[in-house]
Design a protein around this nucleic acid. Structure first.
Length: 300
DNA sequence: ACCCAGGCGGGCG
DNA sequence: CGCCCGCATGGG
């Protein structure tokens, strides 16, 4: 116990991060916000990991990203983890250059400069986006918090008990009544089914080594995971930036901006995006289209 | 009160 | 294939 306590000492680090806007990144509806222990102090977040390894908090000022970590994270590991999770390995100059095909994309880049695609735990992302269908972002967060409180394993962060993100095993073992009590609605049965598969038959970690198309096919075997949700999981859980999730917003925005408001099928929209932008940029294109279009209420 | 939300599964022609 | 429908719940 004594040695455990000494390992919970807070350590700090800082890295330079150009073209990184923490507010845009954290508020862009990606799952890391759903379980973050959230404090509005300048701008900082605690990332409570489902691994139980420890906690990493990040805050930003200018182009400096401050890291503070405890538990069994070494300084080097924490640093690598933050860089990976914040998408800091992505070359934004090159990405912006490829994305910027027209005035709307140009304004999206100007309005949301520094917004990164984050990389989140695969099960956590899967669960969050199963909950996302026919739902809104605020309520997805509400449900997720309740799931964390009810099913998350406790973790002691230097004496402060936090609840980790519930594992697939924990959700699979929960009764449908307890799951529904979190406000999941009709998605509860999908979630339980998917959790069971993910804890018994499908190793989500295996998808990291698979190409985009194969990984998508595997994910779509899960209950409650269709074309759009699979693309979200691949983008935000696996950082497969070929994924181009098309939701009601993206559909409306592309139809309005690029097709004079004419109705297009999801398939046609995928085809349009694939012809217009390089494959590895599609995830970023989608994220910028979505947030710029939403903030400008395009098509509404 | 009423409307809608980062879709999906199931059933139909 | 494409199309249509129902769906639980909480916030505006």
């Amino acid at each position: 116990m004594a040695s455990y306590e000494t390992q919970t000492v807070e350590r700090t680090d800082a890295i330079r991060a150009d073209a990184f806007d923490m507010r845009h990144t954290f508020e862009s509806g990606q799952p890391l916000t759903f379980h973050a222990d959230y404090s509005e102090d300048g701008f900082s977040r605690n990332l409570a990991y489902s691994t139980g390894i420890g906690r990493i908090s990040v805050s930003s000022s200018g182009n400096i990203l401050h890291i503070s970590h405890s538990g069994r994270y070494s300084r080097a590991t924490a640093r690598v983890e933050v860089i990976k999770r914040m998408g800091l390995n992505d070359d934004m100059e090159r990405i912006y250059e490829g994305m910027n095909t027209d005035p709307f994309m140009d304004s999206a880049i100007r309005n949301f400069k520094g917004m990164r695609i984050t990389e989140n735990d695969s099960w956590e992302t899967t669960m969050c986006f199963i909950l996302s269908q026919f739902n809104n972002i605020k309520r997805i967060r509400l449900i997720t918090r309740r799931m964390i409180e009810r099913f998350g394993q406790p973790y002691s962060d230097g004496g402060t008990i936090i609840s980790m993100f519930p594992s697939a095993e924990a959700v699979a073992g929960a009764s449908i009544g307890d799951i529904n009590a979190c406000g999941t609605g009709f998605r509860g049965k999908y979630l339980k089914s998917a959790a069971k598969v993910c804890s018994e038959n499908l190793d989500l970690k295996k998808l990291y080594g698979m190409d985009y198309a194969s990984a998508k096919e595997a994910l779509m075997e899960l209950d409650g995971v269709g074309d759009k949700v699979a693309d979200c999981i691949l983008l935000f859980g696996y950082h497969k930036t070929e994924a181009f999730p098309i939701d009601t917003w993206i559909k409306r925005i592309i139809e309005t901006v690029y097709f004079k408001g004419r109705n297009k099928s999801i398939k046609e929209l995928h085809k349009f995006a694939e012809r217009r932008w390089q494959p590895e940029l599609l995830g970023y294109v989608q994220q910028y289209l979505f947030w710029n279009g939403r903030s400008l209420k395009v098509g509404t």
